[in-house]
Simulated assay, not measured.
Amino acid sequence: MTNELPVAGRTPLARQLMMIGAALVLVALFAQAWVVVQARPQDLVTGAHGMADIISRSLPPAFDQFKPTLMPVLETIDLAIFGTVVGVLLAFPLSILAARNMTPAKPLYYAARGVISLTRSVPDLVWALLFVTAVGLGPFPGALALGVHSIGMLGRLFAEVIEDMDMGPVEALTLTGASRLQVFAHAVVPGVLPSLLGIALYRFDENLRSSLVLGFVGAGGIGFFLLTAMNLFQYQTVAFLLIVTFVLVTCAERMSAYLRRLVA
Rank of each mutant, 00 (worst) to 15 (best):
F140Q: 08
M102D: 03
F240E: 03
F158M: 06
L214D: 00
W127L: 11
A91G: 13
I20V: 12
G218W: 01
A62Y: 04
D166L: 13
Q38V: 07
E160H: 06
K67T: 07
N101D: 04
T250M: 15
M230P: 02
G50T: 12
S121H: 08
L232N: 06
L94W: 06
P194W: 06
F140R: 04
R203M: 07
V148S: 04
Y109C: 07
G215S: 04
L44D: 04
L157A: 05
V263N: 09
Q234Y: 09
G87N: 11
M1R: 08
G114V: 10
Q38Y: 07
A187C: 09
D164W: 10
V217E: 01
T237E: 13
L173F: 11
G142T: 03
A200I: 03
P68T: 13
A178G: 12
W127A: 06
D78Q: 09
V183G: 03
N101R: 13
L262H: 12
G87K: 07
F224I: 01
Y258V: 08
P93G: 15
A172E: 15
L248Y: 12
A229D: 13
L146Q: 09
I243F: 14
V249F: 05
L226D: 00
L70K: 12
L70R: 14
Q32R: 09
N231Q: 15
T250G: 14
Q234D: 12
P12D: 10
T245Y: 01
F82A: 06
L74Y: 11
D43P: 05
M18E: 15
V115A: 10
H186R: 15
L74M: 13
G114Y: 08
G221D: 02
A219R: 00
E4N: 08
L70S: 10
V161G: 02
L154M: 14
R203S: 02
E75G: 03
N207F: 05
V244L: 11
A252R: 08
E75V: 11
V35K: 14
M1Y: 14
G198S: 10
P107S: 09
R120N: 12
A14K: 14
P12K: 11
A22H: 03
L197H: 01
I162H: 08
L129D: 05
S256F: 01
M167Y: 01
F140H: 02
L13W: 15
P68M: 14
A48M: 13
T237H: 02
L193V: 07
L118G: 07
I151H: 08
A264V: 11
F216N: 00
L125A: 06
G152I: 05
Q65M: 10
F92L: 05
A128K: 01
A22N: 08
G220V: 00
R156I: 06
I162V: 15
G220P: 00
V170A: 09
L208T: 00
E4Y: 04
G168C: 03
